[in-house]
Amino acid sequence: MTRAHTLETPPTTPARALDGPPVPEGPPPPRRKHTWRRLGNQALWYAAAIVLALFIALPIYLIFVSAVTPEADRYTYPKAIVPSALSFENISFFLRASGVVDAFWRSCIVGIITIVLALGIGAPAGYAIARYVFRGRDAYRLVILATRAFPVVILSIPLAVLYRQVGINDSVLGVALMHTTLALPFTVLITSSVFVSIPRDLEEAAQTLGCSPAQAFRRISLPLALPGLTAAAIFTWVLSWNDVFAAAILTLRNPTLPARILSSLTQAPLHFQFAAAFVMLVPSLVVIFIIRRYLLGLWGRVVK
């Protein structure tokens, strides 16, 4: 049934020299040239990138030129795409207009109060949903997400009524409270994504090494979260700085900067408007530059 076979080691295969890897012969092959097709393909991608970038950047450059055009050139036409000189005449004209500087400071203060409130209230909640599994966590997240579905308008009007009753209408605090409401969902979600990105293991390791939970948070998670929290704070400030609608409804004699500009928009000369837009724009650009590393982290992860 079975054929007997040898269990001895089989004869080795005919002796061969030890095989090394095959040695290539002749000169090394010429470096592959970029083919036109490959080059063209790359060029198309760059062209697309540049067109999109111009669409975004050109208007910003133009408003910059508009804002710094000297008074003498104000009515020159066609306009020069490179200004003949850098002049702050428009900007200082804008800043000297009644109430503008006050409104500027008011906007800054509103922004700072908003940061303190939104982060002070929102960051603990963000930490909680990042670190703990607890009953109601999903419901809370859902509520937070849902708040974004409601237009600002719907909140501003009853708040204006309420503020008149409490006596904080037309005040910095009133606007800041409203801005905190607008910012809070973002702060909660952003800070939670910041804390999620810090491995829980780190805090646990600190606890096994002698920290209480509070110490572990202060010594490990907080320092690691700080850049992300700063970015969140800066973005909160931008939300507040940019809001026009709520500020327009909630203030009258004490407007924030956007509200002040809006109220005189129809009567103001164009160079006033351009300077105004430029002044509003500069902090925004700086902010995006500061938090550029966090853009994807902040917004990308918020959506999940």
Binding site: N242, D243, V244, L262, A277, S284
Partner: peptide
Amino acid sequence: ALPLAISELA
């Protein structure tokens, strides 16, 4: 991403 922080009014 520049326009992200630019207000509606500006």
